[in-house]
Design a protein around this nucleic acid. Sequence first.
DNA 1: TAGAGTAGAGAACGATGGTTCTCTGCGCAA
DNA 2: TTGCGCAGAGAACCATCGTTCTCTACTCTA
Lengths: 195, 195
Amino acid sequence: MIDEETARERVVSTADRLFYAHGVQAVGMDTVRTESGVSLKRIYALFPSKDDLVLAVLRRRTRQWDTGVTGAVSGAGTPRDRLLAVFDFLAEWFREDTFRGCAFINFFGELGGDSNRVAEAVREQKASFQRRVAELVREAGGPGHLAPQLVLLAEGAQTTAAISGEPDAAAHARAAADTLIRCAFEGSQEAERAL
Amino acid sequence: MIDEETARERVVSTADRLFYAHGVQAVGMDTVRTESGVSLKRIYALFPSKDDLVLAVLRRRTRQWDTGVTGAVSGAGTPRDRLLAVFDFLAEWFREDTFRGCAFINFFGELGGDSNRVAEAVREQKASFQRRVAELVREAGGPGHLAPQLVLLAEGAQTTAAISGEPDAAAHARAAADTLIRCAFEGSQEAERAL
DNA sequence: TAGAGTAGAGAACGATGGTTCTCTGCGCAA
DNA sequence: TTGCGCAGAGAACCATCGTTCTCTACTCTA
């Protein structure tokens, strides 16, 4: 018999793969059971309802996203490169052949209208990413309005890459981000000179 | 007995409202029937399957989007204002209290993994918007790389506004677009001077 | 070895899905 | 008026959903 943590991880990773590929409602719990190899009884002992499983998937994705961004950012040198590294991280992700957009956006569109728990989890993840980018902008000494603009580019790149199927949306977003960053710093330097 | 076109319009507009608010799979055909007042027999005579109804909803949204963009753009003066007008159009849309993101993105996330027809319809709408923006950029004399960047901002604004619930994503997108446009034109003027 | 307890497989259950069918009733031609 | 045809309401149908239950079999202790 397998360990509880192992069973939990198997169920969540299986559910993640299936929900992300086909949508949540298109995947039955029976399929999760078959593909994870964990019995329904065990699954329901770990996750009281499908909704809880969906939330567990979102929590897992949040952790993965955070460590991914951290890794990408930490590899970059200058503060401005650290901002651009976020878009390199996106580019890498978009090239995975299982890529099908941002799971948070997809789940929100499918379930957010009726499930407050899902909507709230998605909102929190997006807000957390926004805070992360704002912090990177602050560290680079950029103006406050830059962060939400860069976030829009990242979000747009995710949906565009998903729908078009072409990963070069990340390159467009990176180029646009580069322009915005450059202009923002010119602007703030001008502001400094004006003082 | 009501006209065929009237019945069709009633069914599609009802399905649009319900699918958009709750997601496609969360809404049964029986609810569409109840809320539209058109019998199931009639609905299935007009739309052979739920999938066809979903496609009809997408076609309707495509028409509305196109006329909306056309209206917004035609009200603006200079070619560069015409580009920015797209973001004013978004701002207006985001303030509607039924706003819940881009239906194409939502439907793609929910159904695009399994339904090629839906995925293709969404892809085509996004490609059409991209062509539209590219044409506006061309008319304004901007460089070719500007259009996909502006599109990313528009897409990002839609999902961000939907998830955060705050319509000011449109303002951020507009400001970023303004910066990108200004930089692009400075760049192309420099290029012209260099000739 | 005997027995208690637990895990797994999957049948069972009630609800609901998309889709079809039946039955009722109304309008209309002869 | 009579019979025909079609529209509408919703019951019916089968599959599948999320969830629970049962039964078998195995493990571990005394």
